[in-house]
Design a protein around this nucleic acid. Structure first.
Lengths: 192, 192
DNA sequence: CGTGAAGTATACAGATCTGTCTACCGTAGC
DNA sequence: GCTACGGTAGACAGATCTGTATACTTCACG
């Protein structure tokens, strides 16, 4: 993991630094030079491991999916609730905690999707990572035995995205409020 | 309006061009030089009317509120439906047409909110213009006699924002689908 | 007239960005 | 010991961006 001098290997340091900076400030707003400086690495080393900034950003989005989507969101949802149905609602409890962090950074997938033009590989990648999240919700909905898992997942993700943007505007209680509409959606499906 | 040679005054041409480019490509992605070129104006003329690019972008957001929020969204909603309650739902019909346009450009307020860092005047301005839209929805909700107009407006705007981002990802039917949850929210309020 | 304001055309300063090039260093493995 | 490779340090090319400076034209208005 770490070499004798106590440092992680260069590729790992680069990606870690890119993760911190890209997720906090956005991909476009962070230059390669800053990543090089803050990861204490030579510029040539970065370009040896990642042929372009775009490739580095794609690796960042992959890492974001592992750390944010899987190791945080999915993991917390499963920790907080035990039944699939409760877990669908727990998404909004997890979001509530997230929004209230003093260093709330927003969703890199939404930010990247909107920052990059269509046909940009980063735009496509962000869209993909968002659809992975929807797949996760759809799985939960399926396990919960709802009538139309795809539809439920779509509607819940609308609320999640709306809440994330609202939180970026300063509505820190957006998740708590979105949760009540999420409940409504689940009740409605059960009633059909 | 137009001078003898058939051209609008320079300030108007600049703002029109900025409107087209900023709303389609985002503020950060469009340089002052391109606006200068496409509005057939000298660079000094632009900086005579707008002291900085930020001021020009603020004027663009104001214009966006007039053209998009007032002259298009509000106007279409009132044209399509006659009762306040129907008008709340008509928002999503108007969005449906919007999303299906081949040149769907997204919401400049959301884009700017996420593109600019907090404390940036453009971030604040975008947040303001979004709250104006929520005020419009809240007014309609009040006229519709719902129990909690502020809450209804908040929830409907969550759906609107979620649908706009989903449309940016390619879900062109996001508005039509969001509409059904909007109906649910209104029914729920009526039932309390 | 003739004066001053507004517009034009263009060059330029200064910053920043991505990506490349060169020269050097340390070390692991043969 | 030598070689090959990964990393370092820093300069640099070339593009792009905001904003300014300069010199010329046009035209309304007193």
């Amino acid at each position: 993991m770490t070499d004798p001098s106590g440092q992680s290997p260069p590729r790992e340091r680069i990606l870690d630094t890119a993760y911190e900076l890209f997720s906090r400030h956005g991909i476009g707003a962070v230059g390669v030079d800053r990543i090089v400086a803050e990861s204490s690495v030579a510029k040539m080393t970065l370009y040896r491991h990642f042929p372009s900034k775009t490739e580095l950003a794609l690796a960042f989005l992959e890492l974001r999916e592992r750390r944010w989507t899987r190791d945080w969101l999915q993991s917390e949802v499963q920790r907080l609730a035990s039944t699939p149905r409760d877990r669908l609602l727990a998404i909004f409890d997890v979001f509530d905690e997230w929004f209230h962090r003093p260093d709330y950074e927003g969703c890199s997938f939404i930010n990247t999707l909107l920052e990059m033009r269509e046909s940009d590989p980063l735009h496509e990648a962000a869209a993909h990572h968002l659809s992975v999240i929807r797949g996760f919700i759809e799985d939960l909905a399926g396990q919960a035995g709802v009538e139309h898992p795809e539809e439920i997942a779509f509607q819940l993700q609308l609320l999640m995205i709306g809440a994330i943007v609202a939180a970026g505007r300063g509505d820190l209680d957006a998740a708590r409020r979105a949760r009540s509409t999420a409940e409504l959606i689940l009740v409605q499906d059960a009633g059909v």
